[in-house]
C-alpha cells in the first residue's frame, strides 16, 4: 500500500467576516512522516480543524502550500479517509451501505469492497448490525461506522477531526483502543485533531500543540511510549510526565489558567 508523508509549509488562513478579517492560521509548518500518527492539540477555535481541511484540500489556504507524497495539494485530496466529529451517516443507507458509499463513489469492485467492509465492521464489534438502520445505533456505534467508511478504500492518509468529541468518556476510551488497534494493522499516516490531552498522548507518536487564534504551532513533542498502549498505561509515570508537560505548555500559552485573573 502506498504511504505518504505530509508537509504543510507556512500555511496561513484569513477568513473575511463582517467585523473585519479574522486570522485563523498564521505560518503553520508541519511535517508528518510516512506511517506516523500525529495529534494536533489545541483549544477550541485555534484553527486546528481548518488546518485539517486545508491538508485535505477541501479549504484552500490563504498562503502556504500542502504537499502529500510528492504532489502539491490544490484540489480535494482523494487518497484519504476522513472522520469528522459528527458521524455524517446517511439515514437512507444501511450500516454497511454507509461504509460502501466510499467504494461506490470510487467505483471500487463491489464484491471486494463488501468483503472489506464486513471485515472492518466485525473488527469494530458491529458484526450483525450490517443491515441495521443508522438510527438504531448508539452514538459510539455510529462513529465506528464512520471510521469503517474512512478505511474501506485502503487510503494512504487518515484525517481525524475530533472524531470522539461528542462521545461520553467511557465510549471514548473504547474508541481510542479500537482506533489504535485498527491503525496498528496497517499503520497509515494519520493526523488527529483533538482537544483531549489524554487522547492525544494515548494515540499519537507525536503531539503538536497549537496556540489560540491566530493558530500557530508552539510545541512539538515525540511520545515515546511502547505500543500497543493500554488504558492502564495512562496511570504510568511516563504518561503522567507527558501529561504534565503538555499542561505546562498550555498554561504558558494561557490556554489553561489555574488562578482566576479576571
Amino acid at each position: 500500500m502506498p504511504n505518504q508523508a505530509v508537509r504543510l509549509a507556512a500555511i496561513g488562513k484569513v477568513f473575511g467576516s463582517a467585523g473585519g478579517d479574522v486570522v485563523a492560521l498564521d505560518g503553520v509548518d508541519l511535517e508528518v512522516a510516512e506511517r506516523q500518527f500525529v495529534a494536533i492539540l489545541g483549544p477550541s477555535g485555534c484553527g486546528k480543524s481548518t488546518l485539517l481541511m486545508i491538508t485535505a484540500g477541501l479549504i484552500p489556504p490563504s498562503v502556504g502550500s500542502v504537499t502529500v507524497g510528492n504532489v502539491r495539494v490544490t484540489k480535494p485530496l482523494t487518497d484519504v479517509g476522513i472522520v469528522f466529529q459528527r458521524d455524517l451517516l446517511f439515514d437512507w443507507r444501511t450500516v454497511v451501505g454507509n461504509v460502501l458509499l466510499q467504494a461506490e463513489i470510487r467505483r471500487l469492485d463491489p464484491a471486494q469492497a463488501r468483503a472489506k467492509a464486513m471485515a472492518l465492521l466485525k473488527q469494530v464489534g458491529l458484526e450483525g448490525f450490517e443491515n441495521s438502520h443508522t438510527w438504531e445505533l448508539s452514538g459510539g456505534m455510529r462513529q465506528r461506522v464512520a471510521i469503517c467508511r474512512a478505511l474501506v478504500h485502503e487510503c494512504s492518509l487518515l484525517l481525524l477531526d475530533e472524531p470522539f468529541g461528542a462521545l461520553d468518556a467511557l465510549t471514548r476510551d473504547q474508541m481510542n483502543l479500537d482506533l489504535q488497534r485498527i491503525w496498528a494493522t496497517d499503520k497509515r499516516t494519520a493526523i488527529l485533531v483533538t482537544h483531549s490531552i489524554a487522547e492525544a498522548l494515548f494515540l499519537a507518536d507525536r503531539v503538536v500543540i497549537m496556540s489560540p487564534r491566530p493558530g500557530r504551532i508552539v510545541s512539538d513533542m515525540t511520545i515515546d511510549l511502547p505500543r500497543p498502549r493500554t488504558l492502564e498505561m495512562r496511570d504510568s509515570v511516563e504518561f503522567s510526565r507527558y501529561q504534565r508537560e503538555v499542561r505546562k505548555t498550555m498554561e504558558r500559552l494561557g490556554v489553561l489558567r489555574e488562578e482566576d485573573t479576571r
Binding site: 481541511m53 480535494p76 479517509g81 455524517l88 463513489i105
Partner: peptide, 8 residues
C-alpha cells in the same frame, strides 16, 4: 467535504 474526499 466527505463526498469530495471520496472523489465526488
Amino acid at each position: 467535504f466527505l463526498l469530495q474526499s471520496m472523489g465526488a
